[in-house]
């Protein structure tokens, strides 16, 4: 499990590499939250292209970060979600509040 960051202006792109479950959730939470508190970050895009597995623990991780950037009037979106993970997000109703895009370029443009 690895988390990589890339800043595009005030938007932070978070790439999660590996498996997102209850075990890795705490690590991802801490990593992302410590990036969010940096003054340059306002919006956040989660890049899921390298996520090899996700269960419902991922919903909490995304929603928690969404709430954190909402406090500073920032936006959250998700890019590159495979069909299995999409099903889990759909069940939870997450897409009603957080948009999902086919690729990173679209997500950055829509930010």
């Amino acid at each position: 499990m690895q988390v990589k960051f890339l800043s595009k202006g005030t938007t932070l792109i978070v790439s999660i590499l590996g498996e997102l479950d209850h075990h890795s959730a705490e690590y991802i939470r801490q990593k992302v939250d410590s990036e969010i508190i940096k003054a340059t970050t306002k919006n956040i895009i989660f890049d899921f292209s390298k996520v090899t597995f996700m269960d419902s623990s991922g919903i909490g991780v995304i929603l928690g970060r969404y709430k954190n950037v909402q406090k500073i009037n920032g936006k959250t979106s998700i890019a590159n979600v495979n069909s299995q993970i999409k099903r889990i997000f759909e069940m939870s109703g997450l897409f009603k509040i957080i948009p999902v895009y086919d690729n990173l370029d679209i997500a950055i443009n829509k930010m």
């Binding site: 269960d55 419902s56 919903i59 909490g60 991780v61 889990i88 069940m91 939870s92």
Partner: peptide
């Protein structure tokens, strides 16, 4: 029940059983 969790402070979504059922 979907979205019910006894551990919201742990950022649990309450979707575990719903995912299993699906």
């Amino acid at each position: 029940q979907p979205l019910y969790t006894s551990k919201p402070e742990m950022e649990r979504s309450g979707m575990g059983f719903t995912v299993m059922e699906n």
